Amino acid sequence: MEAIFIHIRILDLVDIFLVAVLLFMLYKLLKGTAAINIFLGIVAIFVLWKITAALKMQLLSDILGAFISVGIIAFLIIFQPEIRQFLLALGTPSFLGKYGKHFAFLSNWFESSYETDTNPVVVACRHMSNIKQGALIVITRQNELQQVVNTGVIIDAVISSPLIENIFFKNSPLHDGAMIITQNRIKAAGCVLPVSKKKLPRYAGLRHRAAVGLTEISDAIAIVVSEETGNISYCTGGNIRHNIEPSTLQQKLASDLGLDSEQADTESVQENVKKD
């Protein structure tokens, strides 16, 4: 008499857990895009194939198995942008923390501080917000985005609020692109960023989509000043927070860049703003 009990090893449980984590990360990555429906459809067909194989429904199992085999090639073609985005994100230290709160402690092992003078950036954003002057500022972390820097005009200058405001002045030839700040210097301006396909609010313009698009595939920080409303938006990890105050901007920059209180002095920023 055949045993009716299924023998489950510890490795089987680990296998199931790892597959569940992988599917969850893929779902979080594709959520909000048109590809999510295709992804769920492929998962459903795969589960149905395994069920028919377990029930020994040979004909249907063979048909679904052939479809899955051919579907791998179709999967790579259809999801080429998403797979590229996933692999790029996989190389960032914050990947585990980004796609699973329960794994955030692992990303802390790789966290570093990035020496960046954020005060001129915050002051410039406050000034540009008051006069509704559009801007898109990117602060790099581990990934220095050299491929993005090469699309703009190299500046390599010390960070200062007058320079930032002058670059994004409406009559400036570089005001439409993004400014890249790396290693505490303004590396380039007028840079071209990838645009996100994620569903965003209607009031989000091209600058907001570019900020989300870049932070989806890198560990950079993107700051957007809206030309229509003057609102300041803050974007990391493909997530954007709209309408934040300069003091909140200062705190988030200090936290995400690993700066101490002396490097990111909010009070000094507020004093500079009051002088205007």
Rank of each mutant, 00 (worst) to 15 (best):
M1A: 12
H7C: 10
L13H: 09
L22A: 15
L22V: 14
Y27Q: 08
K28N: 13
K31T: 03
G32D: 06
A35T: 09
I36F: 09
I36L: 15
L40C: 08
K50F: 10
T52H: 01
L55E: 11
L60Q: 14
D62W: 09
I68R: 04
S69W: 13
V70G: 10
I72S: 02
I73Q: 01
A74Q: 06
I77Q: 04
I77W: 11
I77K: 07
F79A: 04
F79Y: 04
E82W: 11
R84Q: 13
F86P: 08
A89T: 03
T92C: 03
L96G: 04
L96Y: 10
G97P: 05
K98V: 09
G100S: 15
G100V: 01
K101S: 12
F103H: 02
F103W: 10
L106H: 03
W109S: 09
F110K: 08
F110M: 10
T116E: 02
T116D: 01
D117G: 09
V122T: 07
C125N: 11
M128V: 06
K132P: 02
T140P: 05
T140G: 01
T140F: 04
Q142F: 08
N143F: 05
L145Q: 02
L145I: 06
V149T: 13
T151L: 05
D156G: 00
I159G: 03
I159Y: 07
I164D: 06
I167Q: 05
F168G: 00
F168C: 03
F169T: 10
F169P: 00
S172N: 15
P173V: 05
A178E: 02
Q183T: 07
N184A: 08
N184H: 09
R185K: 15
A188M: 11
C191K: 01
L193G: 01
V195T: 15
K197R: 14
K197Y: 08
K198F: 02
K199E: 12
Y203Q: 14
A204S: 13
L206S: 13
H208R: 00
R209N: 02
R209H: 09
V212I: 15
T215F: 03
T215I: 07
A220S: 15
I221G: 03
I223K: 00
V224Y: 01
E227M: 12
S233K: 05
G237R: 06
G238Y: 04
I240G: 01
R241Y: 11
R241H: 11
H242A: 05
E245G: 00
P246Q: 05
L249A: 02
S255D: 13
G258F: 02
D260P: 01
E267K: 10
Q270W: 08
E271I: 15
D276W: 14
